[in-house]
């Protein structure tokens, strides 16, 4: 079973995605904010895919991605954002090897999220 790490500073968003992904047959690890995410990434927990919000207080999504890089974790990642103007993050995201196709804009249609998850995990 694939394990997905869901990271968002808004607990209700984590809850919605977690509820949905579990229903769709995934295992879910949750982190309410960047600090928790980094803690999990540093542990030896198996993660097959991460869904991370960009704009979070204290530790942002970009910082989580940067830490993930340092830890040499290579799982595919989906980036969530609440603003349509991602231009200021785009350069950094590109440096990490992400493109516009890895970004989903809130409010996200959960089935669009499922499609992208399946696509990243290469499951039909």
């Amino acid at each position: 079973m694939y394990k997905i790490l869901v990271v968002d500073d808004e607990p209700q968003i984590v809850r919605v995605m977690q509820g949905f992904l579990i229903k769709m047959g995934f295992e879910v690890a949750e982190a309410t904010g960047g600090e928790e995410a980094i803690e999990l990434l540093r542990s030896d927990i198996k993660i097959d895919l991460m869904i991370v919000d960009l704009k979070m207080p204290k530790i942002s999504g970009i910082e989580v991605l940067s830490e993930m890089n340092k830890l040499n974790r290579k799982q595919p990642t989906i980036i969530l954002t609440g603003s349509i103007d991602t231009s200021k993050y785009l350069k950094e995201l590109k440096d990490f090897g992400y493109t516009i196709k890895d970004i989903l804009y809130k409010p996200v249609d959960l089935f669009a999220l499922l499609d992208l998850v399946k696509n990243k995990l290469q499951i039909a």
Binding site: E10, I13, V16, F20, G82, S83, I84, P107, D109, L110
Partner: peptide, 18 residues
């Protein structure tokens, strides 16, 4: 503001979908 509103919107629509 959009950023602030999009979060609750996602919670509402996500819960409706579930």
């Amino acid at each position: 503001m959009a950023h602030e509103v999009n979060n609750p919107l996602m919670i509402i629509s996500g819960n409706a979908q579930i």
